[in-house]
């Protein structure tokens, strides 16, 4: 047996302690029952499972966790948080980790999801409310989807969807803004 080849990790529990005090998120009481993972609707698209995210945080595997696609694939359905027998707010931890991943500047594996969230908040910053037509335009351009869809021809589907929405009176032409834009902008600074 080649002992050298067994990967070992050096636990760094300080990170968990820091998260627990930073945002009052309980992580240490997870006993790995996997109830979170078993009820999760999108595990099929995740590279590691929700219980593994929690375990890796317990072990202080910061780099591994911040690079996983799981935190971005999470649909925030709150099933895990609801069912955890130990009161671990798994969904809340997923959000916390997304913030830390952006802060650390690591590569986000789900770029399009991240871009969608960003353009959404930019739209709110602009007028205090979201204007769906504009939001979709910005997303299509910033994510590169416009170009991708032109290239593979699927832009036709996109146009027909937009046209149907318009025809059915569901696309506003002009956005609605609020008066307290400045206050909202300050929140999002």
């Amino acid at each position: 047996m080649e002992q050298e080849n067994i990967p070992t990790i050096k636990p760094e529990p300080e990170w968990m302690a820091q998260i627990e005090s930073d945002r009052r998120l309980n992580i240490s009481s997870c006993y790995q029952c996997r109830k979170c993972t078993n009820g999760c609707p999108v595990t099929f698209a995740m590279d590691i499972y929700p219980d593994q995210v929690i375990r890796l945080v317990q072990l202080g595997q910061r780099d591994r966790v911040l690079r996983c696609n799981t935190i971005w694939i999470c649909a925030a359905c709150e099933t895990c948080t609801t069912r955890c027998p130990n009161d671990v707010d798994i969904a809340g931890i997923m959000d916390y980790l997304k913030e830390r991943a952006i802060e650390a500047g690591v590569h986000v594996p789900e770029q399009k999801t991240y871009i969608f969230h960003s353009v959404f908040l930019n739209d709110v910053k602009r007028r205090g409310r979201v204007f769906e037509g504009r939001l979709m335009q910005s997303y299509m351009i910033k994510s590169g989807e416009l170009w991708n869809k032109i290239k593979d021809g699927s832009i036709k589907e996109e146009i027909s969807l937009g046209w149907t929405l318009f025809r059915k009176g569901r696309l506003r032409i002009l956005p609605k803004g609020i008066k307290a834009k400045k206050e909202v902008r300050k929140i999002l600074m």
Partner: peptide, 25 residues
């Protein structure tokens, strides 16, 4: 009167503080 966007999934995914504040307003 003059309600603003709740922040939706985007805010709670990227900025906890803003998410609470947007809805808080």
């Amino acid at each position: 009167p003059d309600w603003n966007c709740c922040g939706a999934t985007a805010a709670h995914s990227l900025n906890h503080w803003a998410a609470i504040s947007l809805s808080g307003r």
